Computed example of a mutant assay.
Amino acid sequence: MNTITYNNVNNHFKLNGFHLGKKDLCRVAYSFIKEGDEYEKSVGDFILDWFDKKTYIDLNTSGTTGTPKIIRIEKQAMVNSALATGDFFKLSPGDKALHCLPTKYIAGKMMFVRSFILGLDMDFVAPNSHPLLYNDKKYDFVAMVPLQVQNSLSELKNVKKMIVGGVKISKSLEKSLAKLKTQTYETYGMTETITHIAAKKIGEKAFSVLPNIKISQDERNCLVIDAPQIAEDTIVTNDIVELINDTQFCYVGRIDNVINSGGIKLIPEQIEDKLSGKIHSRFFVTGIQDAILGEKLVLIIEGEKQTLDENTFDELDKYEKPKEVFYVSKFSETDNGKIKRKEIIENI
């Protein structure tokens, strides 16, 4: 059996209804770069990078938890990731896919790679917040971020399977999705793992890893990923997890977000989960320096000052209740919608 490489374009691949091979795609890329909108230019750049003589691509990390950096990923590893996704989600040549993510980041690049390699019939649209507006087509596979999902609930009846990544799905959005027939999966991954290495269906607690991936924990209880077909080295994350077995885990929170308040370790993501649906603006909790406690837990809410209901904090343990509430008119965020917590805290 011939190995599928990055030079292959599956015969079933279509872009916006047209069968395109390698040469056709390069012509489209030049056209995008010369005459396209900004989001199309980044696609043109990526296609030309994909079919050049180099075996790798340089990618920007999002910079959510630190300074954005450039990392080098082998194209064959991206192909292997696409094959694993196809296997996990049972995608077949000719399946109809919608691409509505920015191609500047890995998630948008990988939708193209999956389509080339798996032979998907892909519609490519502008990566805006209402990607299914005025679109009555039926899709087998779609990838979105939560904001796009929230704005597309009434159109999702035309989507069979959907993966959602970038930021965590809120409890209220999860409830809305549970009522739909669409098979929705929350994904776990990062640029270094070439997007997702695990996914969980809406309503499930544990993430299940994709094929050919092994997981473990280090002494901090953080996730360690062994994915030889995707990354040469073992990836040690800063994500605290509960390991269920060697293929399943529950996400707890990031170790660099943990607050040490008077010797009590508090995990912001767990507190935010309890507050989900009770505060109607975007928010997060964090620790700021305190002379007595070392760090004190505070709640930061986006927008104008508001009166919080008396029962807002009822579900929280006594140590989890914020000592102070701050309001920030507009959260700073990365291009793909992740809140820059550290930057917001520094400004406060």
Rank of each mutant, 00 (worst) to 15 (best):
D317M: 08
E269F: 00
D246Y: 02
C222Y: 04
N257I: 00
V142E: 04
Q270F: 12
E315R: 12
H196T: 10
Q76V: 05
F88V: 09
K342E: 15
L133M: 13
E346Q: 08
V328I: 15
D123V: 03
Y30H: 15
E219D: 13
S154Y: 10
T187Q: 09
K340L: 12
N158M: 06
T187G: 09
K296F: 08
I292N: 14
I344M: 10
I288M: 07
I71S: 07
D52Y: 00
N16G: 09
T234V: 15
C222Q: 06
Q248V: 00
N347F: 11
Q183S: 06
Y6A: 04
T61A: 02
G294D: 11
C222R: 07
T3L: 11
D136W: 02
K161C: 05
K96G: 04
N128Y: 08
M1H: 10
P102R: 11
G86T: 01
N11W: 00
L147C: 02
A206E: 14
D246V: 04
L15M: 14
F326Y: 15
V149F: 03
K318W: 14
M162E: 12
E269L: 05
M111V: 07
L316V: 10
I225E: 04
K338Q: 04
T187H: 07
D52A: 01
F46A: 09
F283D: 02
D87F: 12
G119D: 07
L316S: 09
L156W: 03
V325Q: 11
R282I: 10
G166K: 02
T237D: 13
I264M: 09
T55W: 09
G294F: 10
T55D: 15
G66W: 03
A82W: 07
W50Q: 06
K305C: 01
